[in-house]
């Protein structure tokens, strides 16, 4: 029992930070898709955000003596802004040019790693960026001492995790309690209904894609902070994994969080099976755990797709002429 508790205390912070990352990026994508624009460019946007954020943090760290968490905050902000700007290319193609949204997103996915590596090499001489420092928060006075919750949530925690919680609450309120959220959801389901009531479909969809871009960019920096202090132009598939979270979560925030937890668990188990006795005894190869989220998504799709929960108008350019 004590052994189990120790293991949980050890594993939980890992799970939480993977979950925070997945849910932030998936939540962003939720805004894009529920406004009616498919966004499979999450991986690419994350990479751009991670690149810009990591680079900024290195510069700040080398030139200014500011507290570590402040630097993390700056990095996260720069990542979010970069992601937002980068996502505009997708928004422009998808919304204004009525292009195929899969193709323009593929272009972004293809562009980001090449650009990050090319630029990193040109600027630093190395193909990767090294953030070096550990940005975790070891202990928080008082909170870390709470039984169970202390070790799970407030030990070896990351600033980004708390930001994720904040973002989730705000996102939920915006989506379901504000006029903007109502309009955004209507654009993804029946843009002609929204249009007939004077809602500007273009504006709403731009906003949806930009929110998605900002959160994916933020997620990119979260990846650098909590998973890999060395950024080499990749985010280990977390972008596509977030897409799987969104789909498995059926485009709904609460379910999305639960799925994010599940997929984060699979991920952590695949990384540290030896630390967890029960898992070790299962003797499943790491790759199986890694595959599970994607297989789960396929199964969920196969079961639900006939009565799919996907926004009805997602992927369809809006043509006012067809009203």
């Amino acid at each position: 029992m004590i052994e189990l508790m120790n293991q949980l205390n050890f594993a939980f912070p890992y799970i939480i930070r993977a979950m925070a990352l997945l849910s932030v990026v998936a939540l962003g994508a939720l805004f894009s898709e529920r406004s009616g624009v498919v966004n499979i460019a999450l991986e690419g946007i994350m990479i751009m955000g991670a690149f810009a954020g990591a680079w900024t943090m290195i510069i700040v760290m080398n030139n200014f003596a500011i507290p570590r968490q402040w630097n993390a905050f700056i990095g996260l902000s720069v990542g979010a802004v970069t992601g937002l700007i980068f996502s505009l290319f997708h928004a422009f193609a998808a919304i204004h040019m009525k292009s195929n949204q899969i193709i323009s997103a593929t272009a972004l996915n293809f562009f980001a790693p090449a650009f990050a590596i090319f630029t990193a090499r040109a600027v630093t001489g190395d193909r990767a960026l090294n953030v070096r420092l550990d940005y975790s928060i070891r202990n928080i006075p008082i909170l870390s001492d709470i039984p169970i919750l202390g070790p799970w949530f407030f030990t070896n925690a990351y600033l980004s995790t708390f930001i994720a919680v904040f973002i989730f609450i705000v996102a939920y309120i915006v989506l379901y309690k504000t006029p903007f959220g109502l309009r955004l959801r209507s654009c993804g389901e029946n843009p002609h209904a929204a249009d007939s009531l004077g809602v500007n479909i273009y504006k709403i969809r731009y906003a949806g894609v930009m929110i998605s871009g900002a959160l994916a960019g933020l997620g990119g920096v979260m990846f650098v902070l909590s998973f890999s202090t060395r950024f080499d132009g990749a985010v280990a598939g977390f972008g596509f994994l977030s897409l799987a979270v969104l789909i498995s979560g059926q485009w709904k925030p609460i379910r999305l969080i639960l799925i994010a937890f599940l997929f984060a668990l699979f991920r952590v188990v695949s990384e540290i099976p030896d630390e967890l006795i029960g898992i070790r005894n299962l003797n499943l190869p790491q790759e199986i755990w890694r595959m599970l989220p994607f297989i789960a998504t396929l199964v969920i799709l196969a079961i639900t797709s006939k009565g799919s929960a996907a926004p009805r108008a997602v992927g369809e350019p809006f043509d006012a002429g067809k009203r």
Partner: peptide
């Protein structure tokens, strides 16, 4: 043709 959002 009604302009209603089906799941609202």
């Amino acid at each position: 043709h009604f302009k209603l959002v089906h799941n609202f």
